[in-house]
Design a protein around this nucleic acid. Structure first.
Lengths: 236, 236
DNA sequence: CGAACCATTGACCATGATCAATGATTGTGG
DNA sequence: CCACAATCATTGATCATGGTCAATGGTTCG
């Protein structure tokens, strides 16, 4: 429902041998393989991968941690566009300059690759193209779901869907690490921190969740959470 | 600001000759060229190019008219994701099934091409890849701008930005054909038809726009419209 | 220890949704 | 061609949701 980012599942696109090009065993044929040869680098919380306006042209893969993609609007407000978890890729899109900033929320480990380098690979191995298209398509789908969720849904619906998506992204365990600050959650869901806080309290009072630590959330009643997220909350 | 769809400007991506592949003059090297060989077809208002859930795998180019891309949410509401004008391309993204429906608003003329066919072209002419990536990237940028605009902006800001974008898309003429119904505008901006109607009236009363016909809008004061769209509306 | 930051809670208010009635426009069949 | 239905748009009255302003409590860091 609420698409935080591309799903972790990799459906490896079928890679038929290409007419007119020898199959070469020294070619790596998935971006994951290519990226995994790159150096592993680190980022502390609040450090950036890149800023809005940079002419950064790299593709990043998050190996560990959590990254937020956000945009500063003309009136100074911040909109978080997407969250990227371990296993996610970002920065695939081509543009003269970055339209978003990418900032580490937790400690992050990542690898990166020049887009130009990816294009070179693509030239040598055109069968990789559908894989590239598929990754970009997931990005499109991600953004479009976000549009659908953000508009016309109440604060409690957004928040419930958000918690459920975190849950899914953390292997369905009921105890969820809430790495984001209230302000990050607010900027992601298009709410104020007060509204986020109030609605978390509501969920707590209704015994749907628990908040043992400020950055730890326990789901008590996932069914009711799903009902709320779907908007059939009715009167609760 | 409010991204209705990809801009009409074509920045033709530089197409260097590909190492190891002969330059062949019989290869068409842009999607526009390839698509323009396809048959021109027609659609009446309210007819669909494809529906949410279809396993349609075509790429469409709108040659004339206006198409809306929308999605039906779980609670039955409709969210218009994007509007496509003459010159725009849609359906590039790959997926097992369509996540959106595409419906003609006006009479529409279009051409289409199988995605698989595009991929074959891509294999023969890998230098076309950056162009493909660029089109998909524009789609991503389009959706992300939409996220930023829809969240946290007032009805009057959304509506002003919307009118300005229509204006830009119609060669900056001050008399704008308003092909969409109020209900389409509402579903695009995430408002109700009543709110759209009321705010159009407000703009009319303030002498910023005129509405001689129900589907015709005249911009009287574009500066004030831009101020409103930017959110510095203040007290008006 | 105090400063800075983050989160929670309360009181109040504004924006836009909902419900409802009326007009206008379009389309259809007698 | 007109009459009636159906759809679409406008306008009003009311209400609920969530934003704003403000005060307080908790946590972390230097």
């Amino acid at each position: 429902m609420l698409a935080l980012a591309a799903r972790p599942e990799h459906k490896p696109i079928s890679l038929r041998p290409v007419m007119g090009l020898r199959e070469s065993s020294r070619h790596l044929r998935t971006f994951d393989e290519i990226l995994s040869c790159e150096m592993l680098r680190k980022l502390d919380p609040h450090q950036h991968l890149f800023h809005q306006g940079d002419d950064d042209n790299k593709i990043y893969k998050i190996e560990f941690g959590l990254v937020k993609l956000y945009r500063i609007l003309s009136d100074g407000r911040r909109q978080i566009i997407s969250l990227r978890f371990a296993g996610d890729i970002l920065g695939l899109e081509s543009a003269s300059e970055r339209h978003c900033s990418a900032e580490a929320i937790t400690h992050v480990k990542f690898r990166s690759l020049d887009q130009s380098c990816a294009y070179r690979r693509l030239r040598d191995e055109p069968a990789m193209a559908p894989q590239f298209v598929s990754l970009l398509s997931r990005e499109i789908e991600n953004a479009r779901s976000q549009i659908a969720v953000l508009n016309r849904r109440s604060a409690i619906e957004k928040l419930s869907a958000f918690i459920l998506e975190l849950h899914r992204r953390q292997n369905e365990t009921d105890t969820i690490r809430l790495d984001l600050s209230r302000s990050d959650i607010a900027d992601f869901l298009g709410l104020t921190i007060e509204t986020v806080s109030r609605n978390l309290t509501k969920l707590k009072v209704k015994r749907i969740i628990q908040l043992p630590e400020i950055h730890e959330l326990v789901i008590l009643d996932i069914d009711r959470l799903e009902t709320l997220a779907a908007g059939d909350g009715g009167e609760w």
